[in-house]
């Protein structure tokens, strides 16, 4: 029976990070949220900052993040995560503060809070999941929904004339001097997951060094609301979303270049 020989403690090459609580996640099968939760907590574990990290998860599918992430967390009202994070950071300047927001939260109802936290160069890291749809409320149009995209509130396809254009909020935020690092990644392939994890690590390292506002956008899927299988939804991300939301670093701190 050779398997037992292999499944030994010192042969371990990959396991779940200890910073994830042992609670099954409620996300739909194949949803990118779960993957990003994991790589975020892998980075928090590797940087050894779980004891002094405080996260903010506003309304959206990821509002339950505090059930899964073993760091002090606050649930925020829809759109207010960056304000809540500002409040935390200002009274705990020595702590590492991040928000974990969806596209509706960050680029619709929370636009003002996001832009002004960025403009103040608030020393927080924003993990921004862009799946181009409102997941928790089951499928409405988001500010990042693609032109022509069908959702429950754009049943005949998003008409940009009357419903506005898909918003590249990361590029907008990158213009602000207070913003040190902006990158756009994805998690629908192992290589991309590795790259996304590296970017999150980069962002948190800038955070630790106090280099101002850092943003990691993750272009992700929403199988249930796109009415696709997980694999089809990732093909949608690859073929439809990524051509518009190009991956890569949008802004990197000047000293590092």
């Amino acid at each position: 029976m050779t398997e037992n020989l292999i499944i030994q403690e010192d042969n371990l090459v990959w396991n779940k990070p200890s910073t994830l609580l042992d609670v099954p996640m409620h996300y739909c099968p194949g949803c990118g949220h779960s993957t990003v939760h994991r790589i975020l907590m892998e980075v928090v574990e590797e940087l050894g900052i779980a004891d002094r990290t405080i996260g903010v998860a506003p309304v959206g599918c990821s509002v339950f993040a505090y059930h899964y992430l073993n760091v002090d967390m606050q649930q925020a009202a829809h759109g207010r995560a960056c304000a809540v994070a500002t409040g935390i950071k200002r009274v705990h300047p020595d702590k590492i503060v991040f928000t974990y927001q969806g596209d509706g939260d960050l680029a619709a109802i929370g636009t003002a809070e996001t832009i002004h936290a960025a403009n103040r160069g608030e020393n927080i890291t924003v993990i921004f999941i862009n799946n181009g749809i409102y997941g928790m409320t089951s499928g409405q149009m988001a500010p990042t929904s693609l032109a022509g995209m069908q959702t429950t509130t754009s049943p005949f396809g998003r008409d940009v004339q009357t419903m506005g254009y898909p918003m590249k909020i990361s590029e907008m935020l990158a213009m602000l001097p207070g913003v040190s690092f902006v990158t756009r990644q994805a998690v629908h392939k192992p290589a991309l997951v590795r790259k996304a994890k590296k970017s999150i690590r980069q962002a948190l390292e800038y955070n630790i060094k106090g280099m101002g506002f850092s943003l990691v956008e993750i272009v992700s899927n929403c199988p249930s609301n796109l009415k696709m299988t997980p694999i089809e939804s990732n093909i949608f991300v690859e073929n439809k979303m990524i051509p518009f939301y190009e991956l890569g670093d949008i802004k990197v701190p000047s000293e590092v270049l």
Partner: peptide, 17 residues
């Protein structure tokens, strides 16, 4: 570990010898 890296729910624990 490709399976573990892509898996959203950390289903896999991977060993290598």
């Amino acid at each position: 570990s490709n399976c573990a890296i892509i898996c959203p729910d950390s289903v896999f624990t991977v060993y290598r010898m």
